[in-house]
Structures are given as structure tokens and as C-alpha cells.
Write a protein that binds this DNA or RNA. Sequence first.
DNA 1: ATATTTGCAAAGCCTTTGCAGGGGA
DNA 2: TCCCCTGCAAAGGCTTTGCAAATAT
Lengths: 137, 137
Amino acid sequence: MKNSCLTTKEIENVLKSKGIQPTAQRIAVCKYVLCDADHPNVDEVKAWADENFPKISLATVYNTMNILVEVGLIKTLRFPHSDKAIFDNNTSIHHHFIDEKTSKIYDISSDEVEVKSKLSNDFEVKEYSVLLVGNKV
Amino acid sequence: MKNSCLTTKEIENVLKSKGIQPTAQRIAVCKYVLCDADHPNVDEVKAWADENFPKISLATVYNTMNILVEVGLIKTLRFPHSDKAIFDNNTSIHHHFIDEKTSKIYDISSDEVEVKSKLSNDFEVKEYSVLLVGNKV
DNA sequence: ATATTTGCAAAGCCTTTGCAGGGGA
DNA sequence: TCCCCTGCAAAGGCTTTGCAAATAT
């Protein structure tokens, strides 16, 4: 579940609307991260950028990902099986299934897994997500 | 939701039953981690051990935690807000609520949050847990 | 002209590893 | 005795930071 792919112009507008200067590096990263990427970590973003952009440093990739998280265009995920941050361009409520063997992450829609809270009112829930672990056949 | 506190003898037996040599350091760590600890990270385990045990190295703490995870006495958790591993001595199905402001983790029982999966059969779910984020008042 | 961003390298955490010394079976 | 465990220090992986040069407004 991703944003449909955006043109360069559209990415520029998205960034500007969030108060982010649309530099060439940031646009390049966004092209991948907001469109084609599927739960990438920083290495994957860097690898894609190295192939599709003249020059970008790892520091700039980190910097850009952090900015995108700050303005809410993407979210950071962390799962027990890895200490690397993983990024998700789907910022609405949904869940994740991780294949034990391959570590591949599958997005699971809210329709597919239903969560009913009976928590007392002193827990003000702002967001939630289910992590499912198992085998995908 | 924790194991009720165990005597040294009981911890020794637990470790032996898992094929782990009950050394003094391991017993000390277990006293904290299997009983009193509430979602500790390694630093907290080390700090506790420094106060309650003559001498233990950070490497041994890491080593012991990894062993406890391997034999299933505890589980590793990771949450988006921190890159540190967090350990949970409750190994049965339950959920977690994180207070946005304090980062305190609350255990949520399966009774309090119900999960219903409508996933197709090619997702073989072995375990699952819900992460809730918000404010605790 | 001014402020922001980039790239590089260094530094900072968290965690693992190598190895010599020590202790338990 | 032999093997495993511990502690220390070094190394490794991920991420952030400092700063000078380059770029954008």
C-alpha cells in the first residue's frame, strides 16, 4: 500500500508544502522512498540513489530520511529481528507481517486484522499497529 | 505481568533445565531479569548487577541476555522510538502500550486488546503483538 | 549576500568478538 | 585435566555530528 508514483514536480510541491527545500538529493531520495520503495532501510535507499543519482552521501540520506519522518511523510519502524531502522511510506493505520525465514515484511491492511481495544480511558491511544510473525507460503 | 520472584535455587534449576550452566553472574542477572525487571535494556541490567553483584562485565550481561533469549526465557523487543534492545520476561502473548512522553512501556493483556485475523491461509501466524502508542494519564 | 545544504571524516552509541586468565565439572 | 565462562579491550555496525565547500533563495 503506497502512494502512487509522483512526478518530480509533484515531489517538489510536496516538499515545499512541508517547508522542506526541494534539493536535487532530496527529490531523488523521495522518488524512491515515497514511491517504489518497500520498507527500505538506509542502505537500500543509499544503494538506489547511487544508481540513479550522480552523487549523494550517506549522511545526506540519513538527514533526508530524518526530515521526512519529522514532517510525517514516512514512519520509522523497528522490529526485534534487526537493529536497523526501516522506513514505511504508508503512514495510515495498518499492520505488518514478517516472514521468519526471509525477514520480508508484508503490509497488512486494517481490514485483514481487526483490533478491538477495551483499555481504560487513562490510555489515550493515538496510534497502534499489529506485528505478526510467521511463515508466508 | 511477571514471573513471581524466584529463589536462587529455583533459578539454578531453571537454567539447568535449559542446559545453561548456572554461574554466579547468570544467576544474578536472572534474579533481576526474570523477576523484578520491567522491560529493561542492557544498561539497566548492568546497573542493577553493579549494585547487587561483586563484579560483572558488560560483555557477560550481553552474553547472558542473548542466552536467555535463545532458550526462550525472555524475548527481545524493539520499538521505533529507540534503537536499544529491550527485554521482556513475559513470553506469552500480550501487547504493549508506550507513553509518548515518558517512553514508559505498559504490558497490555490479551483480554484488554483483542486481535482478530482474517488473513488468508498462506500467512501462517506464529506470534503477534499489538503496539499502542499514546498518552497515559 | 545570506542562509541552507552537502559531503567527508570523525565521533558516538550499541553490540559482538578475540583472547588470556580463571573457575567449575 | 579439560572445557566453559568471564572480563577486558578492540572491533564492528548503525547513526549522528562538525565543519568547510558548494548550493539555493
